[in-house]
Simulated assay, not measured.
Amino acid sequence: MNDLDRTAEKTAATTTRMRPLLWLVLIVSVAANVTLSSVLDNPWAGSAFGALALACGVTLAVNHYRNR
């Protein structure tokens, strides 16, 4: 039978390692979204980076509420 404590520890360790990467991707995608949408006037690429930023933000929020 599976050890639930060990599984939870492994999952928490994995998400803890991913959190800095998610923050980095979030910051870069927000900067790219702003740059492509306003400065270069490319709404398609800006929208793609906006969706990526939204996905990272949602993932970070879900991770925060699961691990508090």
Rank of each mutant, 00 (worst) to 15 (best):
M1T: 02
N2T: 07
N2G: 06
D3Q: 11
D3H: 10
L4A: 02
L4D: 05
D5P: 07
D5K: 09
R6V: 14
R6N: 13
R6T: 14
T7R: 05
A8M: 09
A8S: 10
A8T: 05
A8H: 04
E9C: 12
K10Y: 00
K10L: 06
K10P: 01
K10W: 04
T11R: 02
A12Q: 05
A12K: 04
A12W: 02
A13S: 13
A13C: 09
A13D: 07
T14P: 00
T14F: 12
T14G: 10
T15H: 07
T15Y: 06
T15F: 14
T15A: 11
M18Q: 07
M18P: 01
M18N: 07
M18S: 07
M18R: 04
R19K: 12
P20F: 04
P20L: 02
P20G: 00
L21D: 08
L21N: 10
L21H: 11
L22E: 00
L24Q: 03
L24T: 05
V25G: 00
V25C: 04
V25R: 00
V25S: 01
L26Q: 06
L26H: 06
I27N: 06
I27V: 15
I27D: 06
I27L: 15
I27M: 14
V28K: 03
V28R: 04
V28S: 07
V28G: 06
V28C: 15
S29D: 01
S29K: 00
A31R: 09
A31I: 14
A32W: 11
A32E: 11
A32G: 14
N33A: 15
N33F: 07
N33C: 14
N33Y: 03
V34T: 13
V34A: 10
V34Q: 06
T35N: 12
T35A: 11
T35W: 10
L36E: 05
L36D: 03
L36Y: 09
S37T: 14
S38A: 11
S38N: 13
S38E: 11
V39H: 05
L40C: 08
L40I: 10
D41H: 14
D41C: 03
D41S: 15
N42E: 12
N42V: 12
N42I: 11
N42M: 11
P43F: 07
P43L: 08
P43S: 05
P43I: 04
W44K: 11
W44A: 15
W44L: 13
W44T: 15
A45M: 08
A45D: 07
G46S: 01
G46C: 05
G46Y: 00
G46D: 02
S47A: 13
A48S: 10
A48G: 04
A48C: 07
A48W: 03
F49I: 04
F49N: 01
F49P: 04
G50T: 00
A51Y: 05
A51P: 03
L52I: 10
L52N: 01
A53S: 04
L54D: 01
A55M: 03
C56Q: 01
C56K: 02
G57A: 03
V58H: 06
T59H: 01
T59S: 08
L60T: 05
L60D: 02
A61T: 13
A61M: 10
V62F: 08
V62C: 05
N63T: 13
N63D: 08
H64I: 11
H64N: 12
Y65Q: 14
Y65K: 14
Y65E: 13
R66F: 14
R66G: 12
R68H: 12
R68T: 15
R68N: 12
